[in-house]
Amino acid sequence: MNQPVAWITGASSGIGSATARRLAHEGYTVYGTARRLERLTDLEADGIRPLSLDVTDDAMTRARDRIINEQGRIDVLVNNAGYGSYGALEDVPLNEGRAQFDVNVFAPARLTQLVLPHMRAQRSGTIVNISSIGGWIYGPLGSWHHATKFALEGMSDALRIEVAPFGIRVVVIEPGAIRTEWNTIARDNLMKVSGHGPYARLARSVHDVLTQADAAGTGSSPDVVADAVAKAVASDKPKARYAVGASARQAVLGRKLLTDRALDRTIARSFNATPDQVL
């Protein structure tokens, strides 16, 4: 009961799994949640408590209640569950765009609402929102993904000021290229949605760049994100945001230094897009 308690969503693989293990190693009682409970089995060997949770339904309330009933507190919420669905804005059905907002924005908002009364009562707590470097910069055919991450960044900034008087901190983690399932899911969906029609040439270019990056293993390990989370929650004065992983800091610097037009041209070249396709 004296151990701090952490709740991590999307804990079945990648960043969520690495973060759950890291915080457990740091002495936290960790609850890891995911839609498929069987994918959390490996975490139990590290003392992590698995919970089945779809972040788009009311099971969130039941998960919160179980943690409070068993531990009496929640010290850290890591909103990690999310996904990226790529395709041209013209091609992606609106219901898919809404689904992406449900998982990437509305779910973190609802989970935050559920834990805040308890954190306010204990006058402490940290909410960690796993965003993306895609919440700072952008790329072609990722409009819905970028929209959700830009929204999550703005929500976090406003929330940080709201809850500071109660001793609650809000931190944004902005991973760059990380070796997870995200790349495969994004590029496969891209070709299904925009692999034919007016955006087919650009879709193939983006798909090839993502494939080559994945094959080259240029992404960082999910452990770099877990390290950033552990650093943030242990700090008395954590930074508002941590850009970590391959190319993350370079992307932030580029966004700060380049004009919009210059950044457009730089991004177009990186995805082998012809000028008439993007400008």
Rank of each mutant, 00 (worst) to 15 (best):
H25Y: 06
H25V: 08
E26I: 06
G27N: 12
G27E: 06
Y28T: 11
Y28V: 12
Y28L: 06
T29C: 06
T29P: 01
T29L: 04
V30T: 06
Y31S: 09
Y31H: 11
Y31I: 14
G32S: 01
G32E: 01
T33Y: 00
T33N: 09
T33W: 02
A34N: 11
R35L: 05
R35E: 03
R35T: 15
R35I: 09
R36T: 12
R36V: 09
E38T: 10
R39F: 02
R39E: 14
T41L: 02
T41C: 10
T41E: 08
D42Q: 15
L43P: 01
A45W: 07
D46A: 13
D46R: 05
D46Y: 13
G47N: 12
I48M: 00
I48D: 00
L51Q: 07
L53H: 14
V55E: 01
V55Q: 05
D57Q: 07
D57N: 13
M60D: 11
M60Y: 08
M60C: 07
T61N: 11
T61H: 13
R62P: 00
D65T: 13
R66F: 02
R66D: 01
R66P: 00
I67V: 15
I68A: 05
N69I: 12
E70I: 15
E70M: 09
Q71E: 09
Q71M: 04
Q71G: 02
D75C: 08
V76G: 09
N79G: 06
N79M: 10
G82M: 02
G82A: 11
Y83M: 09
G84N: 05
S85H: 15
S85T: 15
Y86D: 05
Y86Q: 13
Y86S: 14
G87N: 05
L89V: 09
E90N: 03
E90G: 04
D91A: 10
L94F: 10
L94T: 10
N95K: 08
